[in-house]
Amino acid sequence: MSWITGPMVAFDLETTGTDIESDRVVTAAVVAIDSDGQVSKERTWLLDPGVAIPPQAEAIHGISTNQARAHGTQAGPAIKEITEALALELCSGTPLVVMNARYDLSLLDRECQRYGIELLGERLRERPVRVIDPLVLDKHADPYRKGRRTLQALCEHYGVTLDDAHNAVADAVAAARAARRMGAWHSSIGSVALADLHELQVRAAAEQAASLQSYLRRTSNPEAIVESAWPVIPYR
């Protein structure tokens, strides 16, 4: 059975910003998608990140500092629950869909380290990791297409509905459906066995990072460094 017709679990975070080393989780969703592409189960979290939510982040996801403090769960226990939920799904062999996994999974990694929580990779106990990243796959399958490659742009290109962008559940579901659609469109990824797809993305992400780094060094910053690790940037 091809990965594009099997069950998936999708994961998305909304955060206080874009720096994986310092920013915090505000909302999270872990959503099970059945073989028909429908939601079969979902878990969501609203966290009090322990820091103020900047106005620019609030403008994107709609969660204010006051709302998070009044209704959010303490960050430490919530991060533990999120990580446990992801580990349970990955240990079952279900692929995990994460748009721009390098960001979401790395930020979750730093949150675990911040609160002394066992890391997702440690919880897997050497089991094979099967992450599907629509951003990496789209760049690999269609490298010369012009235009943006945000989740909204990918949904428009592949004909996937995204009605409530930057809602963690909506984004997670849309990412899974976009991944299925691009796998159906591009045999170069859709025909790859799930067991091999993860390693394909490790190589593709490194190639994409090297290409971007080369471009930046030629055009704007001779010392630019673009991280090549995927799906988690190692903590240094």
Score class of each variant (00 low, 15 high):
Met1His: 14
Ile4Pro: 03
Ala10Ser: 13
Ala10Cys: 09
Asp12Asn: 13
Thr15Glu: 01
Thr16Leu: 06
Glu21Tyr: 10
Arg24Thr: 10
Ala28Arg: 05
Asp34Gly: 09
Asp34Gln: 06
Ser35His: 15
Gln38Val: 11
Lys41Arg: 13
Thr44Leu: 11
Leu47Thr: 03
Pro49Arg: 05
Gly50Lys: 05
Ala52Leu: 12
Pro55Asp: 12
Ile63Phe: 03
Thr65Gln: 07
Ala68Pro: 06
Arg69Cys: 04
Ala70Gly: 08
His71Asp: 13
Thr73Gly: 05
Gln74Gly: 15
Ala75Arg: 07
Ala78Asn: 01
Ile79Met: 02
Glu84Arg: 15
Leu88Gln: 15
Cys91Gln: 15
Ser92Lys: 12
Ser92His: 08
Thr94Asn: 06
Pro95Asn: 00
Pro95Gly: 05
Ala101Pro: 01
Arg102His: 02
Tyr103Val: 12
Ser106Cys: 05
Leu108Thr: 10
Asp109Ser: 15
Arg110Ile: 05
Ile117Gln: 02
Ile117Asn: 03
Leu119Glu: 09
Glu122Cys: 05
Glu126His: 12
Arg127Asp: 04
Asp142Glu: 14
Pro143Leu: 00
Arg145Gly: 07
Arg148Ile: 08
Ala153Arg: 09
Leu154Phe: 00
Cys155Val: 00
Tyr158Gln: 08
Gly159Ile: 07
Val160Gln: 06
Leu162Trp: 08
Ala170Arg: 09
Asp171Arg: 04
Asp171Val: 03
Val173Ala: 10
Ala174Met: 07
Arg177His: 13
Arg180Cys: 05
Ala184Glu: 11
Leu194Ile: 13
Ala195Ile: 10
Asp196Trp: 05
Leu197Thr: 06
His198Trp: 01
His198Ser: 10
Glu199Thr: 10
Glu207Phe: 04
Ala209Cys: 09
Ser211Ile: 11
Ser214Glu: 15
Ser214His: 15
Leu216Gln: 15
Arg217Pro: 08
Arg218Trp: 07
Val226Met: 04
Ala229Cys: 12
Trp230Ala: 07
Val232Arg: 12
